[in-house]
Every structure is written in C-alpha cells, then in structure tokens.
Simulated assay, not measured.
Amino acid sequence: MVDRYTTLVIDDEKSARDRIIRLTKHFPDTFEIIGEAPNGTIGLEMIENLQPDLIFLDIQMPGLSGFELLERMTAAPLVIFCTAYDEYALKAFEANGIDYLLKPLQLNRLTQTVAKLEQVSTSTISKKELLDVLKDLQQQPQEKKATSFTIKKGDRMVLLKIADILYFEASEKYAYIYDNKGNKHLTEQSLIQISKSLPDSFIRIHRSLMVNFDHVTEVQKYFNRRFVIHLDGKEPLKLISARSAYEQIKEKINI
C-alpha cells in the first residue's frame, strides 16, 4: 500500500471531473491529484507519461472509451471507475476487488473508497481481470443523458438545448422549463422522468424545482437550513431551496 496515491481523473464531462477533484480534497492524505484529462486519448498519454498510482476513469467516452484505454495502456495503476451503470450490474467489480463510483459522485461513497484503498495493493488486480469485467459491462444497456428537450409549439416541434435551461418547475403531472432567454415552456414529462436523463449539473433543490447549477451565480445561506439560489439569464432571478436539499446543495458548492 502507498500512503498517498498520485491520481489522474479521466472523464469527458468537465462537471464530473470537477466534482471528483473537489471531493478528493476531503482526503488530502489519500489523493494527490496530478492531472485531469477530457478524453481517453489524452488520458492514455498522461498515464504513460506520469505513471500515476491511481486513476478515476469514466467508462463511456467518445473517441477512446475506458475499455479501449485499459487495453492500450502499459502502466498498471489502480482503477476506480466513474459510471452511470446501475449498482446491480457493477457487482462484478466488487468480486474482483475493483471499486466504482456511481454518478453523480457522493462524498459518503468516496469515503468508502478511501477505506477500501487502505486494504488494496497495486498487485491485487490484473489488467486481464479489469478487461474481462469491463467487457461484460459493455453488454449492459446504459441510459443516455439528454442534450435537448423537444417542446411542442403549436404545430411545430422545437428542440431546446439542455445547456440553455435555467431550471424546471413541477406543475401537477407536467413541468415548466425556464430558459436563459426568459422563455417559459411546458413539457408533458414529470420532474421524476426528466431527472433520469439530466447531467450532473442539475440538482433538485425543492420538491417542485430542479436547477441547473451551471447557471448559478451565487448561493446565500438562508434561515432554517435553506439557501437562496441566484441564477443568470435574461433577467437574474432567485429561488429558495427546501430544507431537505441542504446537504446536497452544500456538497455541490463545496462548503
């Protein structure tokens, strides 16, 4: 076992990389972040050049996937997978002593990873075992994250980019979408349905509100374990979070 793991973070989603790096700061005696890569190709080059002890690795990436990266690398770091695969499909990882983190990464789950690292040596997992397990998981269906929403406008269907959405507001069985141009749209999906296909930047701050933190400009503490969330857009606005979202928001903004 090493006392402090030199660590690379390899994921094509910047928000996912930022989240991993932010949460590893809670364990300065375990992780030493020495770099991050936005795709598998750059990640492979950094692995070979920097020879890290450990990598956080996304499975599904455009270009060079996590599976292809493992096939090509000659170094042998410990691998912690960051994935949207469900927990049932990932039981195989545990059987091989491999750890995994479901997206979005949670601090309590990373705490378990740190405890596991204290018992793991770099010789416990062979490259073949990694590839065999990952090959099985490649057969598992993975839900795709939406990049846009289809909005009905009279007899037209309009595509609204996820990146332009400020927040969703529940309205009985449906939801309203508020974009950064000051528009309000109605979708026939519920918040529960919508949340299954959203990226990590979206947080449910209230039973009826789901906010895109990529558009958050300021977060202020409010009374009774709540926050005032400031959003950008055509006209700046403020939303109040529920007490139930306190810990999740606190973790998101790293306080």
Rank of each mutant, 00 (worst) to 15 (best):
Y174M: 13
I177T: 07
I177W: 08
F202R: 01
E169T: 09
G182D: 09
L186E: 09
E188F: 12
Q189S: 10
Y178I: 15
H185N: 09
K184S: 08
A170M: 08
I203H: 03
Q189F: 10
Q189C: 04
D179K: 08
Q193F: 01
Q189V: 02
H185W: 15
N180I: 06
S197V: 11
D200I: 05
P199W: 04
Q189P: 00
E188R: 07
L198Q: 01
Q193Y: 04
L191V: 03
Y176A: 11
S195R: 03
K184T: 11
L198A: 06
E172C: 12
N180G: 06
I194Y: 00
E172R: 15
S201L: 03
S197L: 03
T187S: 13
S171H: 15
Y174D: 14
Y174L: 12
L186H: 05
T187I: 15
S190C: 08
S190T: 10
K173E: 15
T187R: 04
E188Q: 11
K181D: 05
L198D: 02
N183W: 03
P199K: 03
A175Q: 10
K184C: 07
K184F: 02
S190E: 03
S190P: 03
K184Y: 00
I203S: 01
D200W: 04
S197C: 07
I203P: 01
L186S: 07
K173S: 15
Q193S: 10
F202A: 02
A175L: 11
L198P: 00
L191F: 00
L186M: 14
K173P: 04
I192Y: 05
I194Q: 01
Y174H: 14
I192F: 05
L186D: 07
Y176D: 13
S171K: 14
A175V: 08
G182N: 10
A175H: 06
I203N: 01
K196F: 03
N180H: 14
D179L: 07
I177Y: 08
D200V: 08
Y176E: 13
T187K: 04
Y176F: 15
K173V: 14
A170E: 06
Q193L: 03
S171I: 13
A170P: 01
I192S: 10
I177E: 07
L191I: 05
E169N: 14
K181H: 13
H185R: 02
F202G: 01
